[in-house]
Amino acid sequence: MIKEDKMKIDRKKAKEEKEIKEIKVSKKEEKEQVENSPRDSPRERESKERKLVVPGQIVVKGLDFLPGDGTIREGDNIVAIKFGLLDTVGRLVKVIPLTGAYYPKKEDIVIGKIIDITPVGWVVNFNGPSTGFITLAEGTREYVEKNADLTKYYDFGDLVAARVIAVKARTVDLSMKGPGLRKLDGGLIVKVNTHKVPRVIGRQGSMVNLIKEETNCNIAVGQNGIIWIKGRTIEAELVARNAIKQVEEFSHTNDLTEKIKELLTKSRIKEIKE
């Protein structure tokens, strides 16, 4: 009996020691992770190469971090469930997707088409997982009488720039209240990858402003990858469209703004000659 008890105790001790070792190991790893986490200035953070992760990859071991967007906790580990770049903000780990469809977020500006009119508002298709809805109150500032003809505000097939105010399970609520949100008349449409939209806009709108100035076009960029261009002439619109396509294609290269500037000045000279 005593012998057995002793053996039990020994085994328990060995187990405990093993556990302690494991904890030490995981703590060591966490320490490394903490040191690697980008808490430094934004510029340094940009230059740092972020890791590309695939679904099912264990990204962090241990309980020191919290799972954010695109990750889940599985036991003691945090596992990526999306394909994209791993980002750490403080103690939060998240995956930034680089490919795939557009998912609406609150406060996004989207460009969509009116596909249906109901007695209480407009249904908008903006290439998202569900349709958007603009209620009468969010659609116009005017007083709308009962049984009024809603097509005089937005008709079937009209293009609108709207802001996302809520993402619900079945619909996305949109609003037309805000600067630049309106019906888009005429012009042409360019579709780009939704993940390239930040490059089209540029830092504080530098890229889109450059294209606007050089081509004298009115441009509205939707986060869903739909871009509306309207200029005085069709030629100017085509130059702007070409520039945007170039931004999309060479989005990963350095000094992109310079390249686009060059392209735009070249095409302007050509226009004058013609």
Binding site: V54, P55, G56, I72, V79, I81, K82, F83, G100, A101
Partner: peptide
Amino acid sequence: LAHAGLPMTDL
């Protein structure tokens, strides 16, 4: 499916 950015627990 992974390339489409869909949430997956594994490939």
